[in-house]
């Protein structure tokens, strides 16, 4: 089957500054694909090029087998990174208008999705009266109101509380199960680690990693220990690097270190709540790739 999205050697520079250099990747039908990298890496530029909001300087971009036309735009749903809606328009009017622009105004589906996102009691309120998080959920609904084949979500979790983050995650997983092709762009790499089939990692406009999450991780071996503890963690022999955040630590081991020795050392130092031998997190992999270690 043909690719839903295909980017071949795309480059773009603004005022002589390269923002995206020679990027190539493709997204298969029904795939949940992660476009990940830090802020300013070029993710949004890639998405804008995909949607022909800006045009690449060189390279080829194909969506649904061809370049972008109005007919194809109708089959894509998009949540932009820069959120914005008409403040004085009511929720239901907003969804109807944005649906009509996709040639598919569907009031029933709009009400259904509002219900699912816990917003049906707000349907007649003006957008300006809603909280930021609610507005964001409205925009996510707007992106899928027309039941698109391809869904592009730029930073879908930013600004959401944990409850809503889970709500949106569940929605994405559900859409994935329905066979939609989904592109998630985010700098929160850990958020998408378990959701995405494959990822493309980008840094400063250059692609640095590309492939299935499992493959990428196994390439780095099981040299990482996830640790939850109480107490004070001091340096441990055999550990190359410690990523510490509160009562949680990610320990990257030197080659040849036995995890059992680490466990013994740790138990003497702190009270251990969790000890897991694993592949490194995407965050850690990214840092390693970027630092060239």
């Amino acid at each position: 089957m043909e690719h839903k999205v295909e980017i071949l050697h795309a480059s773009k520079s603004f005022n002589g500054q390269p923002v995206v250099s020679d990027i190539s990747f493709d997204i298969a039908p029904g795939e949940v694909f992660g476009l990940i990298g830090p802020n300013g890496a070029g993710k949004t530029t890639i998405i804008r090029m995909l949607l022909d909001i800006i045009r690449q300087d060189s390279g080829v971009i194909r969506i649904l087998g061809s370049s972008l036309s109005d007919g194809i735009k109708d089959r894509i749903g998009y949540l932009p990174e820069e959120r914005g809606l008409y403040k004085r328009l009511s929720v239901i009017d907003t969804l109807n208008y944005l649906g009509a622009l996709k040639n598919k105004p569907d009031k029933e589906r709009a009400l259904e999705l509002l219900e699912k996102m816990g917003l049906s009691s707000h349907k007649d309120k003006k957008i300006g009266e809603l909280s930021k998080g609610m507005q964001q959920k409205i925009q996510i609904i707007a992106a899928i109101i027309h039941d698109p084949e391809i869904i592009i979500l730029d930073e879908p979790f930013s600004g959401l509380d944990p409850v809503n983050t889970k709500l949106v995650k569940d929605l994405i997983i559900e859409l994935g199960k329905e066979g939609k092709t989904i592109l998630i762009s985010t700098h929160m790499m850990d958020q998408v680690e378990r959701m995405c089939d494959r990822i493309f990692m980008i840094n400063r406009g250059n692609g640095v990693l590309y492939g299935s999450v499992g493959e990428i991780k196994s390439g780095y071996g099981k040299n990482t220990i996830f640790l939850e503890f109480e107490g004070e963690l001091k340096s441990i022999a055999g550990v190359r690097k410690t990523n510490l955040s509160g009562n949680y630590a990610e320990l990257i081991l030197k080659t040849g270190t036995d995890p059992q020795d680490i466990l013994k050392a740790v138990v003497e130092m702190v009270k251990v709540n969790r000890f897991e031998i694993s592949t490194p997190s995407l965050n850690e992999i990214f840092i390693q790739v970027v630092e060239g270690t």
Partner: peptide, 16 residues
């Protein structure tokens, strides 16, 4: 200013 532009442009052409 209100940033709705990008949603609109993902649905219609600049000219429309």
């Amino acid at each position: 200013e209100n940033r709705v532009m990008e949603i609109l442009l993902s649905s219609v052409s600049y000219k429309d």
